[in-house]
Simulated assay, not measured.
Amino acid sequence: VKHKLGIDYETLSKENPRLVYASISGFGEDGPYRDRAGFDQVAQGMGGLMWVTGLPGQGPVRAGIPVADLSAGLFAAIGILIALQERSVSGEGQWVQSSLLSAMVTMMDFQAARWLVEGEIPEQAGNDHPTSMPTSVYPTKDGFVNIAAAGDIIYARMCNALGIPELADHADYATADLRSRNRVALSEAIAGQSKRFTSAELIELLNDASVPSGPIYKMNEVFDDPQVKHLGLAASVPTSGAGELKLVGPAMRLSRTPSQMKRTMGPAGEHNEEILRELGYGEPEIAALRSDKVI
């Protein structure tokens, strides 16, 4: 589309060599799939995410959020910042390219490295961490909690906190590799103890022992959490109609120049007249465009 409209990088950079221009595509600006339409779920499948998500043997499962869409945008933003910094040295702009596919493959991180480095094809592991156990979901009296007790020291802390110190020295779980290979029996032993507590009791017990753990929330519970409230992750944003809308707040915090969501997106065409005036249109011309339903 950009080439048809004459707003591609090659054309615009001739007018402004300092231009930093960003594009997000489905599969990249060149290569055999360059003309294919991109969609998040397609990229999730092609990037390998759907094959490692879900319970063992369940078949491919999509993630609950558009991971490829979101990460492609983030990588594009990072690329723009790098290009701007480089321009401050070279004085020249450049074309920043991101794609759903490249972002998804990059987000596979250590799962991709398992294949590239070790030749190992990652499989579905459900709620278990693929390699570091015990990191999984465990039952409580009133629900479930996440426990992340990877590493010998944290694993021993967890065993002591749960009242099963003998598990820390058990021959079947003496090393990280053994804990991963014997994960089913280990998780059953931990679950036998975790069910003695409510979720709140267990989380407090484990965090007091410096063992990472936390609740598993529904969306309404997320925004009722005191830390989420403290971080301001539900922001009241003014709307164009003089009301307010609750939206997800910024994930980052800046100490000197804190971010602020000033207002929501307005209705389509909200700034038509303002933009047309900047382009030199007079009131009669704008009125004529409106009368002809051009705007």
Rank of each mutant, 00 (worst) to 15 (best):
K2T: 06
K4F: 13
G6V: 11
E10I: 11
T11K: 15
L12D: 03
E15R: 15
L19H: 06
V20A: 02
V20N: 02
Y21L: 06
I24H: 03
S25Y: 00
D30S: 15
G31I: 01
G31P: 06
Y33H: 15
Y33C: 12
R34A: 15
D35K: 00
D35S: 04
D35T: 06
A37E: 09
A37F: 00
F39A: 12
D40R: 02
Q41A: 14
Q41R: 14
Q44K: 11
M46T: 01
M46N: 03
V52F: 09
L55T: 07
P60I: 09
R62T: 09
V67H: 09
A68N: 01
L70P: 01
S71Q: 15
A72M: 05
L74S: 04
F75Q: 13
F75C: 08
I78W: 04
E86D: 08
S88R: 12
V89R: 13
V89T: 10
E92D: 11
G93T: 10
Q94C: 13
S98L: 06
L100R: 00
A103G: 10
V105A: 10
M107P: 02
M107S: 10
M107W: 12
F110N: 14
F110I: 12
Q111C: 00
E120D: 14
Q124K: 14
Q124W: 01
G126I: 04
D128C: 08
P130L: 09
S132A: 13
S136T: 09
S136E: 09
V137P: 04
V137F: 11
V137W: 04
P139C: 09
P139Y: 01
G143F: 15
A150R: 06
D152F: 07
D152E: 14
I154R: 03
M158P: 00
N160H: 08
N160V: 15
E166V: 10
A168F: 03
Y173E: 05
T175E: 07
A176G: 14
L178Q: 15
R183F: 07
V184I: 12
L186Y: 07
I190F: 04
Q193C: 02
Q193I: 01
S194V: 04
S194L: 06
F197N: 05
S199G: 14
A200P: 00
I203R: 09
E204D: 15
L205D: 13
L205P: 02
L206Q: 01
N207D: 05
P215A: 13
I216Q: 01
N220I: 03
E221C: 00
P226Y: 05
V228W: 01
V228M: 12
K229E: 11
H230Q: 12
A235H: 09
T239I: 08
A242I: 04
L245R: 09
L247Y: 07
G249V: 03
P250R: 07
A251K: 06
L254Q: 09
P258G: 12
M261C: 12
M265R: 14
M265A: 13
E270G: 04
E270V: 08
I275C: 12
E278L: 14
E278G: 03
G280Y: 10
G280K: 10
Y281N: 11
G282I: 10
E283K: 13
E283N: 15
E283F: 11
